[in-house]
Write a protein that binds this DNA or RNA. Structure first.
Lengths: 133, 133
DNA sequence: CGGGATCCCGCCAGATACTG
DNA sequence: CAGTATCTGGCGGGATCCCG
């Protein structure tokens, strides 16, 4: 759907806005990356080791846990500390920025929880109308 | 990473919590579905017709626009009104619930905008450390 | 104008096996 | 313990054509 952009988008692009590399977009993407939310909430209760996190998040594969943690670490939301014990242990915890993310995240989830019933009702109505056709 | 779940998750499951069908999860998923945010913000300024929305969102395909709008309509955030003119026109607008979603959404994007510099700095440091190895 | 139907490619994530 | 490496199938999503 390429074509003439409207004034607002044009102005944003002139401001250096890049749709493909917009931090807001990537944050939102990471946020919904299926596991980040749960990881952040878990780490909000204290630092956790790799396998401890895995046990708290049933059904996540080691691979996805690693990947999600790397992403969060790269964005500066999570701190990774390696301890040279044997066997070695790694502790993950929220950084200052990570904790500052809790407020907006809770605002979102609170809305979702409060709207849950309405959403399920809307879905049922929508699906019912489709089936009834 | 299947295994013994911790008490909190176990309690949630006992409460009927389903990780696969959790509304909070699906909302977060839809939210980050790459276009929903922009669509909602665009509709926040007033009702729009299908192609007008497409023009405001450069680089979105008709297919994804349709799909995103259907999802939002199904969740009750967006209202779809068909007018029997010729050629036919379809107007999309936010429902009451859709407007109530603006607040949490703005909380999230505000945080992202404010943290943008820190995130980019963290990424540069992370990538730099990786390259320097 | 506002979509639906179909084809098809790329990458995402699960399973499995190996390592310091 | 805390990961990496590889292979593989599924499906998300672009391109294209068609329709009322």
């Amino acid at each position: 759907m390429t074509g003439p952009t409207n004034d607002r988008i044009a102005a944003m692009k002139a401001d250096g806005f890049d749709l493909e590399d917009c931090p807001v977009r990537t944050i939102l993407d990471h946020l919904a990356a299926k596991w980040t939310t749960l990881i952040v909430f878990e780490l909000a209760e204290g630092s956790r080791r790799f396998n401890a996190l895995g046990r708290s998040l049933p059904d996540i594969s080691k691979r996805m846990l690693t990947q999600s943690l790397r992403e969060l670490e790269r964005d500066g939301l999570v701190r990774r500390e390696v301890f040279d014990t044997k066997p070695p242990s790694v502790e993950y915890s929220l950084t200052e920025m990570g904790r500052s993310f809790l407020a907006p995240l809770e605002t979102m989830t609170d809305w979702a929880v409060q709207s849950q019933a309405d959403i399920l009702r809307a879905r049922a109505a929508f699906d019912g109308a489709a089936t009834a056709s």
